[in-house]
Amino acid sequence: MAKLEGETPVFSEDRVRALVEPHRHERGPLIEVLHAVQADFGYVDKRAVAVIADELNLSRAEVHGVVTYYRDFRSEPPASSVVRLCRAEACQSMGAEALVAQACEKLGVRVGERTPDGRVELDQAFCFGNCALAPSVTVDGRLYGRLDAGHLDALLEAL
């Protein structure tokens, strides 16, 4: 299952089956399997749904239902960078909404959208558990606290 850093593997049924294998004998393994597939491919391809259903003896509807229920699972490849601003109460109390507006303007997108060149996706989150050092953002999974307008600008420019 070796892959080069930052490279998304080409979809293959065999690769999905190999990803299911270590979880096959776990109890209720579907979500673990979906995490594994997404970690490998970057998303859960529609074609993977049928393979996973077959491997775990579930209906395609059950697998599809789980993929679409949880916000973490994507059905399309992600942008090269994902910016997630926290909009929960603790971050609101420290000006999160102004930072969301700033990011929207700077990137020219709304929350949930990606830039026209497809490189950056702006997303929201409800709490990273960094509420004493609010407001918070993650950039490609890395958490930054005590965010202010200048720092957010610098982070977005570095993308």
């Binding site: 929960a88 109460e89 409800f126 509420c131 004493a132």
Partner: peptide, 11 residues
């Protein structure tokens, strides 16, 4: 699954 904003003790 400590999802409440303002909580981080579990983490």
């Amino acid at each position: 699954d400590e999802g409440d904003s303002g909580t981080f003790a579990d983490r």
